[in-house]
Simulated assay, not measured.
Amino acid sequence: MNKKIIIIAVGVVVLIAAAGGTWFFMHEAEPVPVAVGADGKPVGDAVITKKEPMYFSMAPSFVVNLQNERGIRFLMVEIDLMSRKDDVFSRIEQYEPRIRNDLLMLFSKLDRDAIATAEQRQGLQSEALVAINKVLTSESGKDGVEAVYFTKFVIQ
């Protein structure tokens, strides 16, 4: 009876060791981010931590007439911007009239069919992001807005 218990215990230990060994050798380790210098090469053993996002509201709302509509249709969009860089929002405030102009021109070219689906609205978000960063780059030499969020999107 004692022999059976010992054999079963040894078998269980071997199975646990085999499972642990398999997991150890098959498990991929998480990559550790490292700081990168201007030359693109790692700098020391410093770990990069992402800075907390900051948000900027483009108030007031953007309101435009939609194109090719039988009746009068309006689009109202409220936009919030996200960045992790400290100086971006001061530059946005400085160039806000041009940014608002370019966004109004972008939105005023739309018709209802161009913004009917969620995918089309996401495409519009991408176009708005490009337009904003284009103004920042042409005026100050650097962009910095990472995301555009539509916090209100109303078609009436």
Rank of each mutant, 00 (worst) to 15 (best):
A17C: 07
E30K: 14
K3L: 15
G44R: 12
V77H: 07
V63C: 05
P60F: 05
P31N: 01
L106C: 08
K142I: 02
L136M: 01
D87N: 07
F74Q: 15
I5A: 08
I48M: 10
S138V: 05
L106E: 09
V130I: 14
E119G: 10
N101H: 12
I5M: 08
A131W: 00
A46H: 13
V154I: 09
F74W: 13
A9Q: 12
F89C: 01
E28R: 05
M105D: 10
V47I: 13
Y55F: 12
K142C: 07
M26G: 09
R91W: 07
V13Q: 04
P42T: 13
E93M: 01
I48Q: 02
F24W: 13
I72C: 06
T151Y: 08
G123D: 13
N68K: 02
R91D: 03
N133W: 04
D86V: 05
I7K: 03
G123I: 10
T117N: 01
E78R: 14
F56G: 12
E78P: 11
A9W: 14
P97H: 04
R100D: 04
Y149N: 15
A9E: 14
K152N: 12
M58C: 10
S90E: 14
E96T: 09
S140W: 12
R121L: 01
P42W: 12
V13S: 10
V14D: 13
G123F: 08
E28I: 06
G141C: 06
R70M: 15
A131L: 02
A9N: 15
L66I: 02
P42N: 11
A18K: 07
A38L: 13
T49I: 14
G40F: 13
G11H: 04
E93C: 00
L110A: 07
V43T: 11
D143M: 13
E139A: 02
I115W: 02
K3T: 15
K109M: 13
E93D: 13
T151F: 04
F56V: 05
A35Q: 14
M105A: 11
V88G: 02
L104R: 14
L136I: 00
F89H: 05
K51Y: 05
A116E: 12
Q156A: 11
G44Y: 07
N65T: 09
K3C: 14
E96D: 11
V34M: 08
L103I: 05
A46D: 09
P31M: 04
Q122R: 10
V36F: 11
V43A: 08
